[in-house]
Design a binder for these strands. Structure first.
Length: 504
DNA sequence: GGCGCAATAT
DNA sequence: CATATTGCGC
């Protein structure tokens, strides 16, 4: 066992590297919960996911549109087929790399699968690092198969949008042609290329870039590093270091981002003017300035819905994304006992991201009344419950080079809760089993730090704290609002009696 | 030539 | 709808 973990190359330093755009993975797993979690995990890394619960279904999908799939990730214990048979059948039908995952930890099963053609054997529970670099398997396959077509530099790159077909206009990069072969091969093929034997088991003709959480996180991170002055598309692109990403993508996103910020800010100012309650707790600039790093903490009183909350200093968009960066050790409680980490802030000592919009702000929760921006940086999930954010840090932004399969270093590890007894069945109870503010606070922190699929405890949250999750998800609709405060607000009716006294 | 911005296209 | 593309002024 563990051999697959050992097998992984551990590319120490440049772990940030690149990550997949437009890589679609077919996940075959009969257990819906597991399927969901794995899917989510994959999506968090920017993969696109197609799911199947049966082998037959998977076969169907492959027959229909194998060319849209880049990799198969399958459980080994499926109801309709024997484990090795699965591999054989899938292998016959498609030439896609097959990665299996299973709870089987016996060596023979593993070896058997590998022998039967699996490219990789992952053990359940799957963790973040297991899937992080799966795209590289597709890359390998691609190269192998692409050789026939174009010789050397046909790097469809696990990267993104193929400009492949269509293309209304002439061509963007005809001039440069294939000059780029160095460090970052961001450009893809020219418009006219693989005609003859179009090996379409490469990346499909996904042309529109989807700004996933991960992608957006990188975007934000880059901006944060660069500061307002350097936050231009070109630089951002460099810092993001995502293969396949083009400057135009960044520009476009940046444009949207700024627009968003502006609207946020406007709304904020309006509400400030309307009822200018001076910030009761402390003054933003002053209050925050002591923390120059990425850890801010804000106080939030759960008493008032309206105007007691401090807003984030920076991009509301970053609320979700940056959440994962802080270390809980910094979190202290005070005031009402509630202190939550603030996400997104304007770090970069002294320089603010968007000076034109005063960052000092204290506003109401309802800065954006309808929460229509809540989605920024969010993957396009619909059901509220699906809103699980991916926490990821990018400690080594700026380093280049591809990473390899492997679970190298863990970023920030949070000491956390002991595995709780997990009620087998879904607890539909509306009553939260939370006695103190500290517990709740912990829960919020833990959720943010640990919902990270990296941690198995996410199961725990799913099934146990449904009311909390609901409230939390509701809270996400207001990006610039301290989450905990909203969670509290939303849970108001469900907070146990002793709740108040706990922090009184 | 890059950038920001707005309009327009997809 | 989110993203891409284009055109214009800087």
């Amino acid at each position: 066992m563990t051999s697959e973990r050992v097998l992984s190359v551990e590319v120490t330093e440049n772990n940030a590297g690149s990550f997949p755009i437009g890589v679609r993975i077919l996940v075959v797993e009969s257990d819906p919960t597991c399927l969901r979690i794995v899917s989510k995990m994959l999506q968090a890394f920017g993969y696109e996911v197609t799911t199947a619960t049966r082998v037959t279904e998977a076969l169907h999908i492959l027959r229909e549109k194998e060319d849209e799939i880049n990799l198969i990730l399958t459980e080994t214990h499926l109801p309709d087929m024997d484990q090795y048979e699965i591999l054989e059948t899938l292998g016959e039908l498609s030439s896609l790399p097959i990665v299996v995952f299973s709870a089987d930890n016996n060596e023979s099963a593993m070896i058997g699968c590998l022998y039967k053609g699996a490219a990789l054997y992952l053990m359940k529970p799957i963790i973040k690092n297991d899937v992080k670099n799966l795209w590289q398997l597709t890359y390998r396959t691609k190269i192998k198969t692409a050789v026939s077509g174009k010789g050397s530099n046909s790097f469809h790159g696990g990267s993104s949008e193929e400009k492949a077909s269509s293309v209304t206009v002439g061509n963007p990069s005809s001039t440069m042609g294939m000059t780029d072969q160095k460090g970052k091969r961001k450009e893809l093929e020219e418009t006219d290329n693989d005609d003859e034997d179009n090996n379409n088991l490469t990346v499909p003709k996904k042309r529109k870039l989807v700004w996933t959480n991960e992608l957006h996180n990188r975007f934000l991170q880059a901006i944060r590093i660069l500061g307002i002055d350097g936050a231009h598309p070109k630089k951002i692109l460099q810092h993001m270091n995502v293969p396949g990403l083009k400057k135009e993508n960044v520009s476009s996103h940046l444009q949207k981002y700024r627009l968003y910020l502006k609207r946020e800010q406007d709304a904020m100012l309006k509400t400030m003017i309307r009822d200018c309650h001076p910030p009761s707790t402390f003054n933003l600039q002053g209050g925050f300035s002591q923390y120059t790093n990425s850890q801010f903490f804000m106080t939030a009183s759960q008493s008032e819905y309206g105007n007691n909350f401090q807003n984030n200093l920076c991009s509301p968009m970053s609320v979700h994304s940056l959440g994962s960066v802080h270390s809980p050790s910094h979190v202290k409680s005070n005031y009402n006992g509630i202190l939550i980490p603030n996400y997104g802030q304007v770090t970069s000592q002294s320089k603010q991201l968007y000076p034109s919009y005063p960052n000092s702000n204290h506003t109401e929760i309802r800065t954006t009344t309808d929460g229509n921006f809540s989605r920024f940086g969010q993957k396009g999930n619909h059901s509220v419950e699906e809103h699980l954010n991916q926490g990821t840090t990018f400690s080594n932004i700026g380093t280049h080079g591809p990473t390899f399969l492997g679970n190298s270093q863990q970023q920030v590890q949070f000491p956390l809760l002991q595995p709780q007894p997990l009620p087998e069945k879904e607890d539909e109870s509306d009553i939260l089993d939370i006695a103190t503010v500290e517990e709740l606070e912990l829960l919020v922190m833990e959720k943010e730090f640990l919902e990270d699929p990296n941690n198995d405890l996410c199961h725990f949250y799913f099934s146990t704290y449904k009311p909390f999750l609901n409230a939390y998800n509701k809270a996400l609709k207001w990006p610039s609002t301290p989450k905990l405060a909203l969670v509290l607000y939303n849970m108001e009716s469900k907070i146990p009696e002793n709740f108040e006294s706990a922090h009184g």
